Computed example of a mutant assay.
Amino acid sequence: MDKKGSKTGGRSKGTKNKRTQEVIGILNKLDCNPIEGLANIATIAMKKQDYALAGNMYKELSQYMFPKRRAIEVSAEVNSNIDIKDLTDRQRRNLKSLL
């Protein structure tokens, strides 16, 4: 990129890199469709009641249909000004077991 941030060379946006193009070419020559293969393995595994293998195949396939979920960070402010007199007997027992 030049000083202004415009692109001056390299691959065009959306163009697959050389290695990816090579792999796609090899798979096409072999008439191999990995997605179809995974689906076939999952189907056969289900018929043989090999649920672990079927589950793994379905898990791999699902990433092509559904986005992966990311963990989200949760933060909260805790107010520790609690009057023990306001607690129920059960809450007091729970608190005592924690301390």
Rank of each mutant, 00 (worst) to 15 (best):
M1Y: 07
D2M: 03
D2Q: 01
K3F: 06
K3P: 05
K4F: 09
G5N: 00
G5M: 04
K7I: 11
K7P: 05
G9W: 14
G9F: 09
G10W: 10
G10L: 11
R11N: 07
R11P: 04
G14K: 04
T15N: 06
K16C: 00
N17V: 13
N17Y: 06
N17P: 05
K18L: 09
R19K: 13
T20V: 15
T20W: 05
E22L: 12
V23R: 14
I24P: 00
G25Q: 13
G25E: 13
I26L: 15
I26C: 04
L27T: 05
L27Y: 08
N28E: 14
N28P: 03
K29F: 09
K29N: 14
L30H: 07
C32K: 10
C32M: 12
C32E: 09
N33Q: 03
N33Y: 06
P34L: 00
E36L: 08
G37H: 00
G37P: 00
L38K: 00
L38W: 02
A39L: 09
T43I: 10
T43Y: 10
T43L: 14
I44N: 09
A45Y: 05
M46Q: 08
K47Y: 11
K48C: 12
K48L: 13
Q49H: 12
D50R: 03
Y51A: 12
A52F: 09
L53W: 00
L53P: 01
L53Y: 01
L53E: 07
A54D: 03
A54E: 08
M57N: 01
Y58N: 12
Y58K: 13
K59T: 13
E60G: 01
S62T: 03
S62W: 02
S62P: 04
Q63I: 09
Q63E: 03
Q63G: 15
Y64C: 08
M65Q: 01
M65T: 02
F66T: 15
F66A: 11
P67S: 15
P67G: 10
P67T: 11
K68A: 15
K68S: 11
R70W: 00
A71S: 04
A71G: 02
I72A: 07
I72G: 12
I72N: 03
E73K: 10
V74Q: 01
V74P: 00
S75K: 04
E77R: 02
V78R: 00
V78T: 03
N79P: 09
N79V: 06
S80R: 06
S80K: 06
S80E: 12
N81C: 04
N81A: 06
I82Q: 10
D83C: 09
I84S: 11
I84P: 01
I84Q: 11
K85D: 14
K85H: 04
D86G: 05
D86A: 15
D86E: 12
L87E: 06
L87R: 01
L87Q: 05
T88K: 07
D89M: 08
D89E: 11
R90Y: 05
Q91N: 08
Q91I: 08
R92N: 02
R93I: 07
N94I: 14
N94M: 07
N94H: 13
L95S: 10
L95R: 02
K96R: 15
S97W: 12
S97K: 15
L98Q: 03
L99I: 06
L99H: 05
